[in-house]
Design a binder for these strands. Structure first.
Lengths: 186, 186
DNA sequence: ATCCGCATGTAACCCGTTACATGATTCT
DNA sequence: AGAATCATGTAACGGGTTACATGCGGAT
């Protein structure tokens, strides 16, 4: 049934549709106006991706929707199916892999946003803790690398410092977020 | 002549070859052992990319090199041609575009590392200053967005905070790096 | 009648991934 | 001879980008 793993992009689309049923155009607009959406998907990426999700039975186009205020070509508003919601729920709470935390940080943040209405506080905390641990490991790795290597290139050392700095910043954010979300013990 | 713009990946490869002439295998190894090289290019990406660079006349395979210590199949060691060095020099000092600074930050850092042996101090400073300005603009944009929007989703606000935090960290790095590299005025 | 804006769709092209194949050399 | 290591290469496949095409309604 689940023909193949979903793309990151497909997961994000599915998540947005789970949050609020949308047409392709809606989604495009939301990418355009969202600050994190530095990425503006092209029609050639968006519509085929929606079709794939539909073909896999994860979303369904709610036919005949009100054709917007100033009507146009018939809109296809997609909404999640039960398997779609399940797939999305599985995706948002996937554990953070330490090895790729740096590469996937943006995706993890997206999942963090999307898990709010889905997961109880405890599971959210668990997720952010796993993110914190992965980031801490990353920082440690980088610092070990900095310590054990000498550079012929001065800029290389500075670039490494940058890596340490932004990982630290992410780590601090995670710690602060955990504090913010932890219910006061009384 | 310049058939088409180079890919980011091709630019990086060209830069690495300009720094030290290398074979595909060498490059692969360097990606694997470098911390910033979270990305490990596959053979199917690497070798075709080298071929493309060669076909465009930017690199040339220095035939018949010593077949390494414990020999193997004939290595193709590539070295930059004059147009290749020129293309690379043009790439490293391209100005930072404010609109995409977030997306391209990793690339900018690579360029920063690669420009060390190529550019005089003054031009390096100019580059880092343009990076700083772009980051400052990014931070300002994000903060404006935070200020002017209210969220139904609490996590969205927290994720925004993360964005602000890491951009700030990058900005601070840029400022500190400028200070480090600026020659003391007397 | 036409042009503009909403909304979806499609084709050519490029490139990266996965997975496999192949050469050449040394070690056992 | 066979296994291991170094080193390059290739084919199938998937998916994104660019650029263009198409429908349909309202405004001039």
């Amino acid at each position: 049934m689940a023909t193949r793993q979903l793309t990151d992009f497909e997961h994000v689309l599915l998540g947005m549709i789970c949050a609020t049923p949308s047409s392709g155009y809606d989604l495009k607009g939301r990418f355009a106006t969202t600050p994190l959406g530095v990425y503006q998907p092209s029609s050639g990426a968006l519509y085929p991706a929606l079709r794939r999700l539909e073909r896999k039975g994860l979303i369904r186009s709610e036919a005949a929707s009100a054709p917007a205020v100033r009507a146009a070509r018939r809109r296809h508003v997609y909404e999640p199916t039960a398997p779609g919601r399940a797939a999305h729920a599985g995706w948002v709470c996937m554990p953070v892999e330490a090895a790729t935390v740096s590469r996937d940080l943006g995706l993890h943040l997206m999942r963090f946003v999307m898990m709010e209405p889905l997961l109880p506080r405890a599971e959210v905390l668990q997720f952010v803790c796993s993110l914190r641990d992965a980031l801490a490991a990353s920082v440690a790795d980088l610092e070990r690398f900095v310590a054990t290597s000498s550079f012929d290139n001065r800029h290389a050392g500075l670039a490494l410092d940058h890596g340490v700095a932004i990982h630290r910043a992410s780590l601090e954010w995670a710690e602060q977020t955990i504090a913010t979300l932890t219910p006061v013990p009384r």
